Amino acid sequence: MSTDDAASRTTVDTERLARWLDEHDLPGGDGDLSVSRIQGGSQNQLYELRAGGTRLVLRAAPGHASPERAGRMLREYRLVQALAGSDVPHARAHAASTDTAILGQPFYVMDHIDGWSPMQDSWAAPFDTDLAARAGLATQLVDGIARLSRVDWRAAGLEGYGRPDGFHDRQVDRWLTYLDGYRFRDLPGLDVAAQWLRTHRPRDYRPGILHGDYQFANVMYAHGAPARLAAIIDWEMATIGDPLLDLGWALIAWPPEGDDMVQSRYLDYAGLPPRDDLLEHYATVSGRSVDDIDYYVILARFKLGIVLEQSVARAAASGGDPRVATFDGIVVELIRKAAELARSTSLR
């Protein structure tokens, strides 16, 4: 047994891993196993497992993760398992382990997806130059969560996975309380957005599976045109809540209303269809009303701004961290645009 790249070797106990794979009737248990680290933007540990002509992916929490975060990896596995048999594009999960001697953290093994992700701040060919083809990426992005919203989460065994009752009633206070734990500066527009959210809760709330961080960076596409969503990935923040928040999250900086959000965009939005086109597609596929979409976009900006502000606060307290230097401007922009949309929506 060996790794594909000596520079990427870690503390993976490949012999123990091979025995575990064999116990679960997965390829690699006969000694023909290679393990290599997958580099990327994920904060979790990802490894490619190769055995003969089969490729699998092992996903685990970071080596330094707390027991709570490590436990979320098994929670994520439960969610992905529940999607089996659905029409939601995802990597099929095979088995999970709590044996920390193999990798240092609990993990699970899933299918390898042959595709690409925009998480590296760029579009793959031909979408880098073909704007007509690029438009299909946006439609497919929305199509993925529209399908996810149709999954019968109770029938899929996800009863108790989240707290759907009162979901919107607790959003504002929950995130403001979270912010109070590290707040170190004023965020113009925060109070405006918070007050608007309190008084404009959705009229039609139907619980469903919520990915929790739905964006271009957390999906994979099949190679080549036309655009086809191959898999939704990174389910760590998933819960049972309001699926429409995933739509609002995806549309945080969408044209035309978000065209001035230069800090929050990590991709070139040229060629992407306007928001109204995507809302129509989502409504058709999901069967859900999108009349309250402004609420979800405002909530998404409000929540993401508060989450990112924690990193800004830590960097400020420690003298600066170049990895989060750009978050400062993103937070200010997100909160400003949340308030701006709230004010404009109130006038309609």
Score class of each variant (00 low, 15 high):
R150I: 00
R150C: 08
R150Q: 11
W153I: 12
W153L: 09
A155K: 11
A156V: 08
E159S: 14
E159A: 14
G160F: 10
Y161N: 14
Y161V: 15
Y161L: 15
Y161W: 15
G162H: 10
R163K: 14
P164T: 06
H168V: 07
D169I: 00
Q171A: 02
Q171E: 05
V172E: 08
D173W: 00
R174C: 07
R174E: 02
W175R: 01
Y178W: 09
L179T: 09
D180C: 03
G181D: 03
R183T: 14
R183G: 12
R183W: 05
R183Q: 13
D186H: 08
D186V: 06
D186E: 14
D186I: 06
P188E: 03
P188R: 04
G189A: 11
G189E: 01
G189I: 07
G189F: 01
L190A: 07
D191H: 07
V192L: 11
V192E: 13
V192N: 04
A194W: 03
Q195F: 03
W196E: 07
R198L: 15
T199S: 10
H200D: 12
R201A: 09
R203I: 02
Y205T: 15
P207K: 12
P207C: 06
I209S: 12
H211E: 12
H211F: 13
D213K: 05
Y214K: 08
Q215F: 07
Q215G: 13
Q215V: 10
F216E: 14
A217M: 11
N218H: 01
N218Q: 00
V219T: 02
M220T: 10
M220N: 09
M220L: 14
Y221D: 13
A222Q: 13
A222I: 13
A222K: 14
A225T: 10
A227S: 04
A227Q: 05
A227P: 02
A227D: 02
A230Y: 04
A230E: 01
A231Y: 01
E236H: 01
E236K: 01
A238K: 02
A238R: 06
T239A: 03
T239V: 00
G241N: 04
D242R: 00
D242H: 00
P243Q: 03
L244E: 08
L244A: 08
L244P: 02
L244F: 10
L245V: 02
G248H: 04
A250M: 06
L251E: 05
I252K: 03
W254F: 03
W254P: 01
P255M: 14
E257C: 08
G258K: 07
G258P: 09
G258I: 10
D259G: 12
D259T: 11
D260L: 07
D260Q: 12
Q263Y: 04
S264I: 06
